[in-house]
Design a protein around this nucleic acid. Structure first.
Length: 863
RNA sequence: GCCGGAGUGGCGGAAUUGGUAGACGCGCCGCACUCAAAAUGCGGUUGGGCAACCAGUGUGGGUUCGAGUCCCACCUCCGGCACCA
């Protein structure tokens, strides 16, 4: 056995072994493991951009560690991998490099699969698929048609970013400061017909079931609940002066109804359109409002602007005339696309009223003494009503019900549950996506493609040119016969939002071999996913859509679970320092962290940085997410080549808890590599001492090491399985190895305890650094691989201690330490504590006012 | 703007239920080994002070015998905002 640790050879040997034995097949042909309980561990599949980045490595290392631990704990584990292969970057690559998106994507997949294998992840590769495989998207089209039959699909108009020069729809990402990214043209809002899936039908269930998701971070559950935004309010119909129609608004604050001083409607609201038709000034204004990006962030941060429409509404209770305005902060997609404005009790209405000189009428006060002073800011809390006729004096909650009842009886309103959540627009005017299986016929309208004609295949040889969707210009794709009447018809050229692709892939992995159905028994057996791992940035959209699709699949009889992911771990970003030099023109030239040398003072604080290449001074920027634009990305492959996959995996798990951002550090990686070499050496030095003999009894040093071992096992088990923090588990392993390096193994009892310790260490480290553990486990004399060894359990007998050390505080300040028998009484402890020399000095002979004893931890004496 | 999160030594981070602040690692300093360097090993490392001790977890208040942890107000940074994935 070699004395030097050589990562490359060790890793190749382990990977060859796993591959040859199909070690990670979830359901092996020989049936092994079939009697075990199942555990489905899934990491979010990657977009095949071409190369793994550190974020991927982190994500998949976390998932692999969890999967390997559960396997050792006795579960039959499924850990699959695949590719989220549709999306914009393939179209961009096609435009930049002239490579067809399909070829670009599949080449990328091959490169990234190879990288994943070199990291030693224990995937069941037999289940691999890409979402751009017709055998996958075929079932997505099929499922869409089932949803259509179930009345959950609609076609209606929606707003998109329109680039008037390139004549194309832009993604929000492609809009930069309100302009198209390629043309530089001012983006406009344009309405086009699109397909929608009625997620709002499931809004109640999606919010209610969040309570079941005990294995999810609270922050994610809160964000989803806020996103769905269920509220109880009142829908109020305001009459319109001089016409027989009305203006419908929704409010959660009917108690402020007497404070309404104007109405505001979205620029797309029918009333605004009507006013625009009769007044060119309004028309121009609305057109101007539409000249902006569609993202909510853009709309909400835009300057608040509005214009009176010259239409009056009638207050339903007072009969007063109220001017109707149109304003850019009212969203057509929320509620009725119109609001009653109460500037006294709403911040935004308040600011708007100030800007446009609209009246402000305070009708709520903190108490019965009078309405709140709203000269500086709105009073937005609930309180007591004033100047509100018969409702004056009521508190807000009572008034809510009373006013709602009054309006209901008068036929002017009704209580309504409303959601912030909007139906899911799934049409995209893009080429590289799953075709929507619909045909348009002059006579029959929109017709579903019959099941036996699925899949509607995406032609893979088209080249986008930046001006619209090439599918819409491809006669071979476009022209077809109407499936219903046979007349010449036109195929839908929009493709699905790629979020659909990722809303059911987890179920398909469990049914990966099914040719005859979207899902088979495998999905019922493996679903729900026991552990899902992925980036926080998916906390709302992807995770909400996946939950929604799970409920849809359940209601179609395809699944029997309500939720897709039992436990969720949202991992933080990988960040790195940035370095740059500023040129004469103010442009920054960014340096990769690996190309920079740091100068430090004698304490180790960074003073300055220079370029490795020529020694010129480089400025130190902030610590930011790894990105191409800041050139602070570190290529995982180079790190694996230099230090090995195990060192990279170990560093990733050690440098930060999984849900926090992780700062890349070259030196930290070297530290991880050092630890592995030390472990290798300790094991081989130990083995060189020969066979272990079982001693009749342990001396106190051997007992102490053994206690530390089992305390560490207890801690690691809790860290890894319950808390899911791996950095502290690794730290505990490091401490344990440090302890081993300090003991004297000439002592036979100690030699035996060291063997026990090293065997346990190799096992608990094996999920994180599986290759070196594979080699060391065999070196320790085992003939089955460490992946089949059981997860070590702490021995309760080894944990018992005779004495404990307590901290003694006087008035909450640390003044001393005492060691007492583990079973000492409270009186004994106080007596020992007051006898301590330093403690006695601080007590100064004063009588004890209070004494607090926390068993096993501390004593606090108060004087 | 709205929603969510974070802020602790020179740096990454630890402190699990309100109970020893700084585990573990990096960096830095010193020593050993070496002709020398690298590698490796050993020791030190929050700040101030000779010490006793004092101060200290973004800022300002509060609750408590005791606060990094709980409460109130604020500051800064990060993530999401429905067509990036």
């Amino acid at each position: 056995m070699q004395q030097e640790y050589e990562a490359a050879a060790v890793e190749r040997a382990a990977q060859d072994y796993w591959l040859k034995n199909a070690s990670f097949a979830a359901e092996p042909a020989d049936g092994r493991g079939a009697d075990r309980e199942t555990f489905y561990c899934l990491s979010m599949f990657p977009y095949p951009s071409g190369k793994l980045h550190m974020g991927h490595v982190r994500n998949y290392t976390i998932g692999d560690v969890i999967a390997r631990v559960q396997r050792m704990r006795g579960y039959q584990v499924l850990q699959p991998m695949g590719w989220d292969a549709f999306g914009l970057p393939a179209e961009n690559a096609a435009m930049d490099k002239g490579i067809p998106p399909g070829k670009w994507t599949r080449d990328n997949i091959d490169a990234m699969r190879d990288q994943l294998q070199r990291l030693g992840f224990g995937y069941d590769w037999s289940r691999e698929f890409a979402t751009c495989d017709p055998s996958y998207y075929r079932w997505q089209q099929w499922f869409f048609l089932r949803l259509w039959e179930a009345g959950l699909v609609e076609r209606r108009n929606a707003v998109v970013n329109w680039d008037p020069i390139d004549q194309t729809v832009l993604a929000n990402e492609q809009v930069i400061d309100g302009r198209g990214w390629r043309s530089g043209a001012l983006v406009e809002q344009r309405e086009i017909p699109q397909w929608f899936i009625r997620i709002t039908d499931y809004a109640d269930e999606l919010v209610d079931d969040l309570d079941q998701l005990e294995g999810w971070p609270d922050a994610v559950r809160t964000m989803q609940a806020n996103w769905i935004g269920r509220s109880r309010g009142v829908e109020i119909d305001f009459g319109l002066a001089d016409r027989d129609t009305h203006l419908r608004v929704y409010t959660t604050r009917p108690d402020t109804l007497y404070g309404v001083t104007y109405m505001a409607v979205a620029p797309q609201h029918p009333l605004a359109r009507e006013a625009a038709a009769g007044d060119p000034e309004v028309a121009r204004f609305i057109e101007e409002l539409q000249r902006s990006a569609t993202s909510e962030a853009a709309l909400e941060t835009a300057e608040k602007r509005g214009m009176a429409l010259g239409i009056d509404a009638i207050h339903p209770l007072t009969g007063a005339r109220i001017p109707v305005w149109t304003a850019n902060f009212v969203l057509m997609a929320y509620g009725a696309g119109a609001v009653m404005a109460v500037p006294a009790h709403d911040e935004r209405d308040h600011a708007f009223a100030h800007a446009y000189g609209l009246p402000i009428r305070s009708v709520i006060g903190a108490d019965a003494s009078g309405p709140a002073d709203i000269s500086d800011a709105a009073f937005t809390e609930r309180g007591v009503l004033h100047h509100s006729d018969a409702f004056s004096g009521m508190d807000s909650a009572t008034a809510f019900e009373a006013i709602a009842q009054h309006l209901t009886e008068a036929g002017q309103g009704r209580v309504r549950i409303n959601y912030r959540l909007r139906d899911w627009g799934v049409s995209r005017q893009r080429y590289w996506g799953c075709p929507i299986p619909v045909v348009y016929c002059e006579d029959c309208g929109a017709v579903p493609v019959p099941d036996d004609q699925l899949p509607v295949r995406l032609p893979e040889d088209l080249t986008p040119d930046g001006s619209g969707n090439p599918l819409a210009k491809d006669p071979d794709f476009l022209h077809c016969d109407c499936p219903r009447c046979g007349k010449p018809a036109r195929r839908e050229s929009d493709t699905f939002d790629t979020f659909i692709d990722s809303s059911w892939y987890f179920a398909r992995f469990a049914s990966a071999f099914s040719n005859q159905a979207m899902l088979d028994d495998g999905a019922r057996r493996w679903m729900p996913v026991d552990q899902y791992v992925g980036g926080v940035e998916h906390a709302v959209l992807h995770l909400l859509y996946a939950r929604f699709f799970t409920k849809l699949m359940r209601d179609q009889g395809l699944l029997d679970c309500d939720e897709p992911f039992k436990r969720l771990l949202t991992q933080g970003m990988v960040v790195a320092p940035t370095f740059f030099q500023e040129g004469g023109d103010g442009r920054r030239r960014w340096f990769n962290p690996l190309d920079v040398q740091l100068q430090r003072d004698e304490r180790g604080a960074v003073l300055s940085a220079t370029a490795v290449a020529d020694g010129s001074a480089v400025q130190v920027g902030g610590i930011e997410k790894m990105s191409k634009s800041k050139n602070n990305g570190v290529d995982p492959q180079a790190m694996i080549d230099a230090h090995g996959a195990d060192a990279v995996r170990l560093f990733m798990m050690f440098a930060a808890p999984p849900d926090q951002s992780l700062e890349w550090s070259d030196a930290g990686l070297e530290g991880a590599s050092r630890f592995l070499r030390r472990l290798w050496r300790q094991v081989h030095d130990h083995l060189a001492r020969g066979a272990v003999s079982t001693p009749p009894s342990l001396d106190s040093d051997a007992k102490a090491l053994r206690r530390q071992l089992h305390e560490t096992l207890q801690k690691i088990d809790a860290d890894v399985t319950r808390r899911q923090v791996f950095n502290t588990a690794v730290a505990a392993c490091m401490e344990l190895l440090n302890a081993v390096s300090r003991v004297d193994q000439d002592n036979a009892a100690m030699h035996a305890v060291v063997r026990e310790t090293l065997e346990a260490l190799v096992r608990v480290l094996s999920p994180i650094t599986p290759h070196i553990a594979h080699a060391l486990w065999l070196a320790l004399g085992h003939d089955t691989p460490v992946i089949d060894a059981p997860w070590p359990q702490p021995d309760p007998g080894a944990l018992e201690a005779d004495e404990v050390t307590l901290v003694v505080q006087v008035n909450g300040k640390l003044r001393g330490r005492i060691t007492v028998p583990a079973n000492a009484s409270q009186d004994d402890i106080i007596a020992r504590a007051t006898a301590d020399e330093a403690v006695a000095r601080h007590l100064g002979g004063q009588p004890l006012r209070k004494q607090i004893v926390v068993p096993g931890k501390l004593v606090n004496l108060v004087v």
